[in-house]
């Protein structure tokens, strides 16, 4: 369903700061795939997700989602097919707007916005129901400004928002990295539930190796703008941290240093 071929991204081309961040990435995903993405700092993981979302133009290559050519589509139009959750909980939601307003904005992703009122009673009831499933007590605080919530609550709302309006692809960029371990665990469980309930295809960047092994049916390891290693199915189930570490050391050609890749 997602087909990325020979994708190149070059930042600041022709300047001293030129950075060839993606060097020919090929990636093919099936519907319902849950892919975890690992790799050292600066490997190009975020760049890969950002180019799928359309944050910046790519140098060459193509991105096709369910037969729709995304490569040159502006980012706000791609949002119809691609939803995302960022690492910083402040980025995914509008802090000055209420929970209800945020959800209503997300429910209209990819749809024509009109001069009708921003939401309606039927929709409110649906939001309430969905929030209640999260078990965070937010269903009774729909009119509260999102800015007054904790990082974990904001991230949970962003996740719910990302699941509305039936997107095809969900992009998660270290979306639990800013949370404390307990909250991170909760949000990951929610992520899995939402992906399953909505049959979403997911690309999840994580710096936590055990999460990368635990979640999803495929794994890719990136290094220097390329996919250095990938595995799926049985092979993915049998993955162990020592094996991944060895793989990593081999591809990077150096021992796994301090903060390069967290073991978790």
């Amino acid at each position: 369903m997602l087909e990325i071929s020979n994708l190149h991204v070059i930042f600041n081309k022709g300047t001293v700061n030129e950075k060839h961040a993606l060097k020919g990435v090929d990636l093919k995903l099936e519907e319902g795939d849950f892919v975890t993405v690992i790799g050292g700092n600066g490997a190009g993981k975020s760049t890969l997700l950002n180019s799928i979302a359309g944050t910046f133009p790519v140098e060459s290559g193509s991105i096709v989602l369910d037969g729709v050519e995304l490569t040159k589509m502006p980012d706000y139009k791609r949002a119809k097919y691609v939803s995302r959750v960022f690492q910083d909980p402040l980025i995914g939601t509008a802090g000055n707007m209420s929970i209800e307003e945020n959800l209503a904005l997300a429910a209209r992703r990819g749809k024509r916005r009109t001069l009708r009122w921003y939401t309606n009673n039927e929709e409110r009831a649906k939001f309430k129901e969905l929030l209640a499933e999260f078990d965070l007590g937010l269903e009774d605080r729909m009119m509260q400004k999102v800015g007054t919530l904790s990082g974990g609550q904001r991230q949970a709302i962003t996740l719910l928002m990302a699941s509305l309006a039936s997107p095809k692809l969900l992009l998660l960029d270290e979306h639990t990295a800013a949370l404390d371990p307990k909250t991170a665990k909760k949000v990951l469980a929610l992520t899995e539930k939402i992906a399953k309930d909505n049959n979403l295809t997911v690309l999840m960047i994580t710096h936590n190796m055990s999460d990368a092994i635990k979640y999803g049916n495929k794994l890719i390891m990136m290094n220097e703008g390329k996919i250095a290693f990938s595995c799926e199915g049985e092979e993915k189930v049998d993955l162990t941290i020592p094996f991944l570490m060895e793989k990593f050391e081999k591809t990077v050609g150096e021992a796994l240093g301090g903060d390069k890749l967290l073991l978790g």
Binding site: Y76, A79, S83, I91, E101, L105, R108, L115, R116, W117
Partner: peptide
Amino acid sequence: FFGTEWGSSIRATGNNQTMATAQGIN
């Protein structure tokens, strides 16, 4: 106006442009 879908999109743009774009707002 600022209670409509259009108005709400404008408020989101002013509050958090990255979020607005991610929610498909032009």
